[in-house]
Design a protein around this nucleic acid. Structure first.
Length: 335
DNA sequence: TTCCGACAGTGGGGTCGCAAT
DNA sequence: ATTGCGACCCCACTATCGGAA
């Protein structure tokens, strides 16, 4: 294995002066795809469901950044401290802050502290967090972004002390399709495929791809909202499923329709409108904005998971189901 | 000519924090 | 003291336009 010095000597790196060391750089973002593949020139990492975080360490001071250049340092003071105590030179690393629920990263658990701006309060939530690091952009003021991904990972493993809460993100070479399958079985959010020779760019790229684990099921349409702005037809569908003859509200779905669909189905919905909610558990706080319809239409919907309050996360409309009676639609539990 | 990438716009759940009530 | 709303985090998707292929 090449030493750090050898890797750095392969190119004539310019080493920035401390005063020109970047305060923030935009992260490289992955592109979503359904086209899963095996490729020996690509590596595969677990996709963690947390908050993307870039850490700059400059003259011993660590700063945690969100991907939109917001400071996260106050929400995760123990991670900031871990970097500052590690006695490292100026560097920038890229990773994901996560909280675990069992063996699976839990975004909803992380939500209990991710917006808290007081460091003491954040730590007192009792939500334990870790940061999984998967890339290094600068080290000792050397710009490493022109290195290949595998060489950056070599540098990362060599220079970073991985002690809790700082963890290394392991990866698998080849077998992307099989790894994705296993990931979904384990309840992970998915995997990230990365071109092992790619340099680091500060924007969305197709050298990094998301292979997500998506869920889908049929749901009954029990209402809709008014469109806003330039939107035509309706805004979102209000959907649910049956449980012992009662229709349970499962949230709103506002994407996946084109303009023609929105206009056509607004008319169909208006033709079967009713005054009261068909949902047995709908809390009536903003009733004025909702339109109710006879729950007879069934659609197919995609989403990532059920939230703690039993609603769809990241919902989208996939198509109408004309072959299914509304009363047959129940919540599909994982087997 | 056709395709792709980037961007704006509309829609979702959940949480915190602050202004308005 | 309570409530409503904006701003964040996580997003999915459609429409549009200009440049690449």
């Amino acid at each position: 294995m090449k030493s750090l010095k050898q890797i750095l000597s392969e190119k004539a790196y310019t080493r920035c002066e401390s005063k020109s060391f970047p305060g923030f750089v935009s992260p490289m973002l992955a592109t979503l795809t359904d086209d899963y593949f095996d490729d020996e020139d690509w590596i595969y990492e677990r996709k963690l469901d947390g908050v993307r975080t870039l850490i700059t360490l400059k003259d011993g001071v660590a700063t945690l950044w969100s991907r939109n250049e917001k400071q996260l340092s106050n929400s995760y003071p123990e991670i900031k401290e871990a970097f500052e105590n590690a006695k490292l030179p100026n560097l920038i690393i890229d990773g994901e802050i996560v909280a675990f629920e069992g063996n699976v990263t839990s975004f909803s658990k992380l939500q209990n502290r991710m917006q808290i701006s007081d460091p003491e309060k954040a730590q007192n939530t009792g939500v334990k967090v870790s940061i999984y690091i998967f890339d290094i952009l600068y080290y000792d003021s050397y710009d490493l972004t022109e290195l290949s991904l595998l060489n950056r990972k070599k540098v990362l493993r060599e220079v970073m002390p991985f002690d809790d809460p700082i963890r290394y993100t392991s990866h698998r070479k080849k077998d992307g399709i099989e790894f994705h399958k296993e990931a979904c079985k384990k309840g992970w959010e998915g995997i990230i495929a990365k071109d092992s020779q790619a340099t680091y760019v500060h924007s969305r790229s197709k050298k990094w791809l998301k292979f997500k684990c998506s869920k889908g099921q049929e749901l009954v349409i029990g209402g809709f909202t008014e469109p806003e702005g330039e939107r035509v037809g309706f805004g979102a569908m209000l959907v649910g499923y049956y449980e012992e003859d009662a229709l349970h509200y499962a949230g709103k779905v506002g994407t996946g329709f084109d303009d023609a669909f929105l206009q056509k189905w607004r008319k169909k919905f208006d033709a079967i409108s009713r005054k009261t909610s068909p949902f047995e558990n709908f809390d009536e706080d903003n009733q004025g904005k909702n339109h109710w319809i006879t729950p007879k239409y069934v659609g197919e919907f995609g989403f990532t998971e059920w939230t703690n309050s039993n609603k769809l996360r990241h919902p989208r409309f996939l198509g109408m189901r004309k072959d299914k009676a509304a009363k047959e639609v129940t919540k599909e539990e994982p087997t």
